[in-house]
Every structure is written in C-alpha cells, then in structure tokens.
Simulated assay, not measured.
Amino acid sequence: MLQLFLLAIFVVFLSTPAVASQVSITVDDFNLSSEIGMEPLKRNAAILAALKKHKIKAAGFVTTKYLNDSKAVEAVKEWSSSGHVIGNHTENHWKYNDKTPAEFSADIIAAENKLKPFATFKKIFRFPYLKEGETLEKRDTLRSFLKNNGYSNGHVSIDASDWYINMRLVEKLKKGESVNLEKYKNFYLKHIWDRSEYYSKLARKTLNHDIKHTLLLHHNLTTALFLDDLLKMYQEKGWKVIDAENAFMDPTYSRSSDNIPAGESIVWALAKQMGDKSLRYPAEDSVYEKDEMDKLGL
C-alpha cells in the first residue's frame, strides 16, 4: 500500500504543470530628445503599439526635466490615455548618493507637481540608477520621506543594461557606420533573457519561490525596435507577461533590505542581506557586456 501511495504522489507531481514565471514591463526616463534612428514620437508609438499588441499595461517612470520638451509631454499623455501607470523618477535624475536628503526630497516633490495632472499618475517612486543611499542616515531619511508622502518604492527585480546596448547602437548610427539591426536584436534578446533567468533563479534561491518580476527598460531606440520581439520571446519561453500594476502587488515590493549602500534590484538586495557571496557589484553595468559587444562588432 505504501508503494502505491508513493507512486500516486509521484504521478500527481509529474502531471502538475510548472508555474510560469511572470514579468512586467517598466520603462524609465522619457528622454525624447534624440532623433537618431527614429523620430521620437514614432519611437513612442512603436513602444505603445507593442504593449497594445500583447495586451499589457506597463509602468512609465518619468524624469520630469524632460517634460520641458513638448514631445515628451505628448508621449506621457499617450501613455496615460492608454492606461499605463505613470510613476515618479525625480525632476533631475540625480544619483541620491551625490545629494543631501533635503535636495533629493525636494526633487521628488518637484516631479510630483508636474506629474499630478496625468490621470494614471500613481505615487510609485523609482530611484535613478537604483541607488538608495550610501549611509544609514540617508537611506532611512528617504524611506521615511517616501512613506510619509504616500509613496511606494517602484523596485526593479530584473535589472539589465539595455541602455548600454542602445548607446552603442546610437553611437554607430551617429557616425554613419553600417549597422546590422538583426545582430543588435539578437544580442539584446540574449542579454535580457540571461538577466531574466538570473534574477528568477536568484529569487528562488533567496526567497524559496519566484516573484512577479519588473523588468527595467528605458524609453530609447532599442525598446522601440525590439520590444515586440522581447515580449514574443518571453511567451515562447513559457513566461507570462503581466501588467505592471499587478506585478507591484507582489509582497516582495513592499520589502526593503538593510544593506549599505542601499539599492540595486530588490531580489539582489534581499540576497545580499542574506549573505549571498556570489553577487557582483554593481549588479549590472556596461563593463559586463563591453567585451562581448566588441567581439561581435556591435
């Protein structure tokens, strides 16, 4: 009887489908000043079209100094009217480690005042560069400020270097050099998938379960060119793409670490707090992708 019982459990285990990893799209900055490679509002339209095609709502974290450009204002209006969440990414995109709490807090409020007119604005704040303070006093002062002003932390779980791939592509276009977009796309997708798998595995290792992920992208040319392919890739690999607002309901995003310096991916930060010795610092940066891109001529 015991053997039959164990066999039945084994059969049930085999027949139970694995829970699909879940990921949402978050897009930072909204700097629409660059015309290189694609006119800015066409770039915005391409990003929104990819999101609409895949029937998902993203979150856009806006650095409000860019709203001095009418194209950026139009882009954020289109995001909001399409039902995407608008979050606060400061007025000036300062690195908090370089500023006082008073300066940085004022910069958040300045951004809030510009973002409040957008219907889908929510008090979700994302630190520029994911840097949350290099001292205990600065870290905790900002955490108190955000809490007292009704903000949640718009944590990233899957950090990546899309900005660096974009920078390399734009530099080649600016110089008038020949560009193989297929090669850039393949590298981009490989990079994002590598980082997605890494942070998913790190979540399981650290928390004993996966989470609803938030992927960090930027409002740039590579997002416009490759977002549709990226969303297809996730689906083909068995991941479920979900709305950003849904992802931020995961309890992990209400957590914080006791690390100094504070910041990085929330998954990385919690792993660091638990003493994971395998982590690199910074978690993501251009140095990790440079050699391979050089070898590929990208």
Score class of each variant (00 low, 15 high):
2 L>K: 14
2 L>E: 11
3 Q>N: 13
6 L>P: 00
6 L>T: 09
8 A>F: 06
10 F>D: 09
13 F>G: 04
14 L>R: 13
14 L>M: 12
17 P>C: 04
17 P>G: 08
18 A>C: 09
18 A>D: 07
19 V>P: 01
24 S>K: 00
24 S>D: 00
26 T>W: 06
27 V>T: 12
28 D>C: 02
34 S>Y: 08
42 K>D: 08
44 N>Y: 00
46 A>G: 06
48 L>F: 07
48 L>Q: 07
52 K>V: 03
55 K>M: 05
56 I>Q: 04
56 I>G: 00
56 I>W: 00
64 T>A: 11
64 T>W: 12
66 Y>K: 04
67 L>N: 05
68 N>E: 14
72 A>T: 06
74 E>K: 15
76 V>K: 08
78 E>V: 03
78 E>H: 04
79 W>P: 01
80 S>C: 00
82 S>V: 07
85 V>C: 06
90 T>Q: 07
95 K>I: 14
96 Y>E: 01
99 K>R: 15
99 K>M: 15
100 T>F: 09
106 A>G: 14
107 D>H: 05
108 I>L: 08
108 I>P: 06
109 I>D: 02
112 E>L: 08
115 L>P: 08
117 P>V: 11
124 I>N: 01
130 L>I: 14
131 K>I: 04
132 E>S: 05
141 T>H: 08
144 S>I: 12
151 Y>R: 05
153 N>E: 09
154 G>A: 08
154 G>T: 04
158 I>S: 01
161 S>N: 12
164 Y>I: 02
172 K>L: 11
174 K>L: 08
174 K>W: 01
182 E>W: 02
182 E>H: 10
184 Y>K: 05
185 K>M: 09
186 N>W: 01
187 F>P: 03
188 Y>A: 03
188 Y>P: 04
189 L>T: 08
190 K>M: 07
194 D>H: 15
199 Y>N: 06
200 S>T: 13
201 K>F: 04
201 K>T: 03
202 L>Q: 03
202 L>W: 11
202 L>T: 06
209 H>R: 15
210 D>A: 14
210 D>H: 11
214 T>V: 15
217 L>S: 02
219 H>N: 13
220 N>H: 05
223 T>H: 05
227 L>T: 07
231 L>Y: 07
234 Y>S: 05
234 Y>G: 03
240 K>Y: 00
241 V>F: 02
244 A>S: 11
244 A>V: 07
244 A>E: 01
245 E>N: 10
247 A>D: 00
247 A>S: 09
248 F>L: 12
250 D>V: 06
251 P>K: 15
254 S>H: 12
256 S>G: 14
257 S>T: 15
261 P>Q: 09
262 A>K: 02
263 G>S: 10
265 S>G: 04
268 W>T: 04
276 D>V: 12
276 D>S: 07
276 D>C: 09
278 S>I: 09
278 S>F: 11
279 L>T: 05
283 A>S: 13
283 A>E: 08
284 E>C: 12
286 S>T: 11
287 V>K: 13
289 E>R: 14
291 D>V: 12
295 K>D: 07
298 L>W: 01
298 L>H: 03
